[in-house]
């Protein structure tokens, strides 16, 4: 199947007083319809900036997308003028956030916000848009959708709000859904519900999902393929099954060994040190200062992304 989202050579920088921060450097990946691609990384790895770049929501200035292309069904979003891009948001590519409270307008009812989204992109009557809103709320399994449509965001629980935001994002059946840590702020039992919901909708609507998360458990449960980001760069890429079974980059190896797992009571392996600030990256491989297997070469030159096994690429000189 042809990929619906093709990101190629994407680079985003922030111009700050102290210099240029390279938030995203040369990131490429593609997602097919109905596929879930996980973007994994810790805070400060540039994954949220990457997501915002896909939506062209980088605050500019100080941010700037300096290179690359983001094609949705063949159209390069980075070449569009702003009005056309606004049309694309919601209808072709949509995004949900970690904290729905900040993404929903507190002064409008949830139903009205979804209806507005619909009328913005489709020529439908106000009444039809309202009906669609109720239908979408039903779709995301909110009980009593008609009554709930008349509620304000603060009247809903965190899980309900996240469902409402998903309903809004999917109201115009976008081809690509970007989910930035969609369950991080939720309780475990609610997280499970929301992940199930995203998965169901993906299958039903054939939406391509880009799932941005730091939680390897979430990745293992719902994603098909994944990329690992470190300090603004893609360092590893492949199917989830392959990467969990045969991680090649020492960073991913470290991550997998540092999470406690139920039923495996051994001492956790630490990754020494902390994530470097994007404004002050070491030369060579950014992970080298924390890497147990780093050699001289790692400190001098940035390793290329090589195919280490079929369909499994990693950027490491050593492994």
């Amino acid at each position: 199947m042809a990929p619906v989202l093709e990101v190629s050579g994407l680079s985003t920088v922030f111009h700050t007083r102290t210099g240029t921060v390279r938030a995203v450097q040369d990131v490429s990946f593609s997602v097919e319809p109905g596929e879930t691609m996980a973007v994994v990384g810790e805070s400060g790895c540039g994954k949220t900036m990457m997501a915002l770049s896909l939506m062209r929501l980088i605050p500019s200035p100080p941010g700037e997308i300096t290179a690359g292309s983001v094609r949705v069904a063949g159209t390069d979003l980075l070449k569009l003028d702003e009005p056309t891009m606004r049309d694309m948001r919601g209808s072709q590519i949509a995004m949900i956030f970690q904290e729905p409270m900040t993404a929903l307008n507190p002064l409008l009812t949830v139903g009205k916000q979804i209806a507005e989204m619909v009328t913005l992109h489709e020529k439908v009557s106000g009444r039809a848009a309202k009906e669609r809103a109720v239908e979408m709320l039903h779709h995301v399994k909110i009980p009593e959708p008609r009554r709930r449509a008349g509620e304000y965001p603060h009247q809903m629980s965190g899980g309900m709000r996240q469902r409402a935001m998903i309903a809004m994002a999917l109201a115009c059946k976008p081809k690509v859904l970007i989910a930035d840590e969609p369950t991080t702020a939720l309780d475990v039992t609610i997280q499970a519900q929301v992940l199930d919901l995203i998965d169901d909708l993906r299958q039903e609507l054939g939406t391509a999902v880009v799932l941005i998360t730091h939680d390897l458990g979430v990745v293992a449960e719902v994603a098909d393929r994944m990329i690992v980001m470190y300090a603004g760069r893609k360092v590893e890429e492949g199917t989830v099954a392959e990467l969990f079974a045969h991680p090649r980059h020492p960073y991913l190896q470290g991550l997998l060994n540092s999470v406690p797992r139920v039923g495996q009571p051994k001492r956790l392996q630490e990754i020494a040190g902390t994530v470097p600030p994007l404004s002050n990256l070491p030369p060579g491989c950014a992970f080298a200062p924390r890497c147990p297997s780093a050699v001289a070469q790692c400190r001098d030159a940035i390793p290329p992304l090589d195919e280490k096994r079929p369909g499994h690429r990693a950027a490491c000189w050593v492994t």
Binding site: M160, A192, G217
Partner: peptide, 22 residues
């Protein structure tokens, strides 16, 4: 326990998850 996502894609299976809100 069923709701906790496990970092183990080999054992992925759809579990019965708890409904309702906290």
């Amino acid at each position: 326990m069923a709701a906790v996502p496990m970092p183990d894609p080999a054992n992925r299976r759809r579990k019965q998850h708890l409904g309702g809100d906290v």
